[in-house]
């Protein structure tokens, strides 16, 4: 019966190491996701009030001051949007309409 006991111990060891591997994988994934997301949220905060150039679908390009994004990344709230039809003081852009946006963030030094 000793063989049986050994088998059981071995099986437990395998189970143990499998679950440790899964836990490790999950916590690495959480670590990576947190790192990426926190940086993105800080980036959004960091460009608040900055002049931004938006490249959109249908070859549309506009400039506006970036204000805020909702957390799902569906909409950007902007101000002083320069459209071909004039300036709109407060506007909401749909993220689905946007391809890319570039923001001038000035020199390397940052204020504390």
């Amino acid at each position: 019966m000793e063989d049986g006991v050994d088998d059981k111990t071995q099986n437990n060891d395998i189970l143990q190491s499998t679950s440790t591997t899964n836990d490790d994988r999950l916590s690495q994934e959480q670590e990576d996701r947190s790192f990426l997301r926190e940086r993105f949220l800080h980036f959004l905060k960091g460009i608040q009030g900055k002049r931004t150039h938006f490249k959109m679908y249908e070859k549309t390009e506009v400039d506006a001051t970036f204000q805020l994004s909702d957390i799902d990344g569906q909409n950007f709230l902007v101000s002083d949007l320069e459209t071909p039809m004039g300036t709109q003081p407060q506007a909401m852009l749909r993220c689905a309409d946007i391809i890319s946006c570039s923001v001038d963030i000035g020199t390397g030094e940052h204020k504390m």
Binding site: T60, V62, L77, Q90, M92, R94
Partner: peptide, 22 residues
Amino acid sequence: MQMEFDASCDLRQPKLWPTIPL
């Protein structure tokens, strides 16, 4: 961030641009 976004929308009453999605 979401609270600031919601509060800012209430205050600024932004208009969707463009009116019809691109």
